[in-house]
Every structure is written in C-alpha cells, then in structure tokens.
Design a protein around this nucleic acid. Sequence first.
DNA 1: GTACCAGGCTGGTCATTGTG
DNA 2: CACAATGACCAGCCTGGTAC
Length: 411
Amino acid sequence: MVESSLAADVAAIPSRSDFRPGDPLSRFYSKSPMADSFAALFTTDMAKNVLDLGCGEGSLTLPTTQRWRSASFMTVDKDPEIELKLKRELRGAGRISHQHHCLDALSLDLPGKLHRKFDVLLSNPPYRRVARTAAIERIFADAGLAGLLDLPAETCTAELVFLAQMLRAAKEGAEIGMIVPDGLMTSFKNAAVRQALVERLSISKVVSLGRGSFLRTTAQAYALMMRNEPGGTGYVDLHTLDEDGLSNPIQISPQEAARRLDHAYYALRPTQMERSITLRELRAEIVRGHRSSVEVRTKGGFHTTSFPKSDEPREIHLDEAGAGKKTDARAGDILLARVGRSSHEKIGLVESGSSPLSDCVYAIRIPQAWRRVVMASLLSPGGQRALRRISCGVGPRVIRKADLLDLPLPI
DNA sequence: GTACCAGGCTGGTCATTGTG
DNA sequence: CACAATGACCAGCCTGGTAC
C-alpha cells in the first residue's frame, strides 16, 4: 500500500550543519552489526504490530523481522523511490507480513493513515531543526509532550517530532527504540527536553553507540529505549556498545537523567577504591581566551594549533606579548584546548612568559603545589579517557567549563 | 552601556570515497 | 590509478546572557 501525496505542512529549515545537499532527507544508514545489536535491545518477547518510522532501505527493519517472526511489520518513508529497494532488502527475511506507506513522518494526520496502533516502534530519524508550525504544536500536544512547546524554538527538531509521532501511534505500554543524536543526550541546552521525556516516558536504557556505527560518518549517536507509559520514578540503565558488545549498566536516577544521559559521563564517577580530586575541589579558576583566530593571526596569541605535539615536552614558553589581562596566559597556567576532535591531547604548562589566548583555549589556574599533580593526571590514560568522555557533540567535540571543573582526576 | 562569559553553530577545507 | 565529488566534516566565529 503506497500513498503518493506527500504532506508538506512542515517546512524544514536547511540551516543546521547536518542538513546536507547530498541527501535532502538527512538520512544516514546504520551498519548491519549495529542494527542487529539495536534489535536485541528490545525486551518485548511477543510483538504483534511493529512500526519502523523513516525506515530508509530497511537496515533497522530487517533484524527486527528476525526478532519477531510472526509480527505484522509496517514501514513508513517519505521517499517514493524507497519501496522497491526496501522490498528487495526484506526479500531475504523470509515470509513476513509487511506493509509500506509512502508518507511524510512529520505530517499531522500520520497516525490516522496507519489505521492501527503498535506495540513495538523503532526509528533512526533525520537530525535537523524543523520550524515549529501549528501542526507541529498539535503533534507535540497530542503526544503528551506539550511541555516542549515552552522551550526555545531551536530545540524543535525532526527527531523529537518523530518521537512524538511514534507516541501517537503507540499502544499504552508499547516499547519504543530510536537512534538519537549526541546533543539530545548530553547538551546543556537540551536538559529541559530530557526532563520532559523523563516525565512523559519510562526510559529503560540509553546505549552509547560507537563512532563508526553508521556508514559515511563518525557521528556519535545513542539508542534510546523506552516504554509508552509515565516515567519519573524508574531508574535508567546506561550502557556502551562496541566491538566487545554491551557494557555493564550504570544505573542513574530520573533527576540525573535530566542532567545527562550518556554512559561515558557517569562512568567517570570514581568507585570508592579509586582516589580522585576535582578542579572545583582544588578551587581552580578556569578562564577562556578572548582573541578570535583573526586577531590571533594579525596580532598574535596562543591557540589550539600552538600546543606542543603529544610526543613533545609539555612545557610552554611564551614571549612577553600579554598585557596582564585576566584572559592572558601566564606562568603557572595549565592550558587545555576547548574544542576539536583531539582537544584532550592538547595540554601544556606555561613555564614562562605571557600571551593572549584564543577563545578555543582554557587556562586552568590552581595553587602551585598541585600543578604537576594535575598535569600528570590530565596526561595519564585515566585522565585522557576522562577528558574524552566529557567532551560532547555529534561532530566537533566541545569541553564545557562546568564539566571540566567537576571532572574526577585520578591521583 | 560595556566587558566578559558560555555554548555550540556554520562555511571553508581537505581527507576519503566514488567513478571511469 | 588518476581525478572528481563529497561530507549527521571541524575549529574559528558568533550570539545571547549576565555582571558590573
């Protein structure tokens, strides 16, 4: 069954960086080992009706057909050319009950067109911002997510609309699994979104997927597993999934879930056996440089490209270019890159001189007695792992000041 | 009003992948 | 194997908020 009319009542804003002309629907395909593992994360034993919203060529659908062989499968995708490819993909799955709809997942009347409710729902949605139209507002309200309407417009994204649509099509207590971007699980900006989700849904687990789980990208994403029932009291299990399989869970409270929902962040909590200290406990002051790169190029200054290489000594000698401003690096400062994929490796201790800093560099100021200890800790395998874990972002990694202050440093 | 702070957006690059 | 096309790129830059 294919419907040819595509709802166009929601306009996507092609401004977010992940909206690429190469694929106008912002699709990225899951690699099959990851898709198999994703299907295994569901706990429903017997499913009758399964929905894959935004199915693409069925890379997530296929493993679920093996998981629930007697279920009826429904797939939905906006691309009218997908059905043939999907049918070809599913042919290898054996005899299964399958229906496909060519529909826009963002359209208000989607649930009505599906003609049934589902007990298992899954999606790898596109990640992009969408305009908050009257239709979108009704979708959120109808899904019991009216709280999202009080939040800033930039939190209105396709992945949240996909989730709301799944809730509208879900039976009470239905199990839902979706692939979500890093920002939704970790960013400060989305804390209120996470709070709304924790209250509306019973989130059972969040699994961090390795960078490399998707074709043609190294994006960081997560599998968010939940049930269509009110949450707010249950604990959430956080895992990572890599070549070694699923890690042991870390349990967090619903309050902690609003703060962050990534395994790596909570994995930093030291066990009682480990000795650690935070920069906040050391009363460290962290200042961020002020010069833009243009100013650094024309007037000079220290920025991310100025750090010693990882195999070089970490001592930094600056020329006396600083003017004594608070944001200028000076002797005794520990410098750390704030942005970049390998920012955790860019660390140095200023031995002499002073210099303006680029705004991509932090200066950490702590009492002299602790400087060598903190430098050694940051450069240790445990410290490096910790720095990698607090940096967040789908593509570029950013280290937040608050996370750096609370980072448990092994000592 | 000004300076500073904090978070993460977006356009110019260049490594990787695709194609002939 | 050489060249072209592409990119949920990546780091420099921007913007909104806050303190004084």
